[in-house]
Design a binder for these strands. Sequence first.
DNA 1: CTAATTTATCGTTTTATTACGATAAACAAA
DNA 2: TTTGTTTATCGTAATAAAACGATAAATTAG
Lengths: 106, 106
Amino acid sequence: MGASKKEEFTTRQNRLADIAKALGHPARVAILEFLAKSNACFCGDIVEELPLSQATVSQHLAELKRVGLINGDIDGTKVCYCINSKAWNEAKEVMSGFLTSIEQCC
Amino acid sequence: MGASKKEEFTTRQNRLADIAKALGHPARVAILEFLAKSNACFCGDIVEELPLSQATVSQHLAELKRVGLINGDIDGTKVCYCINSKAWNEAKEVMSGFLTSIEQCC
DNA sequence: CTAATTTATCGTTTTATTACGATAAACAAA
DNA sequence: TTTGTTTATCGTAATAAAACGATAAATTAG
């Protein structure tokens, strides 16, 4: 792949792309929707809900956490996941700012 | 990778993820912003604008075209790209619908 | 203390993405 | 017709992503 050229773009463009990338898999979309519906829930509940193995779900959760969109609070052996409202609001702003900035056409 | 499990999710979840994936690279964000600023422009103009090779830019344009977000009209040897307003409006709806549907938290 | 539960991580495989030089295809210009 | 311009595609290499079984780590229950 040659080196990644991400440094060549603005911080905002990279942040937007990073958020979008995190939303770029149906499993992660489903996880976020499930969390929103449940308000908060244990990792195991998500694993039950999705047609994917525990390891794979854990991987998707890690990706959402990496971008900051969710929190995981340890509670005994379990981990309770929920949406990070602060980050989610930021994502909403960045995303809808971008979406509405693109207008007009030929 | 084992087989992709995308069929296990809803059409809407897949469409949303597909759009997000297309926005998931800063070069493609930059392309869309440049197209919006320019209204429409030739492939060569985009290549000049971005810090990437002609081949790579062409590949990114193909990805945006695949999702339907842009059109490419052939004009002699050149190709004039512009945002597909219809698809963009759909993307806006799908995205902001999703963004606002995720609320509340712990 | 031991056993069970829950989740993350490791190791691995398959597939996709990103990047680019080289080349082909299509057209314009000379 | 030949030459130059423009863009897509091919070939290829490096990296990342997706998926899962197996295992480790942490904690709770017995």
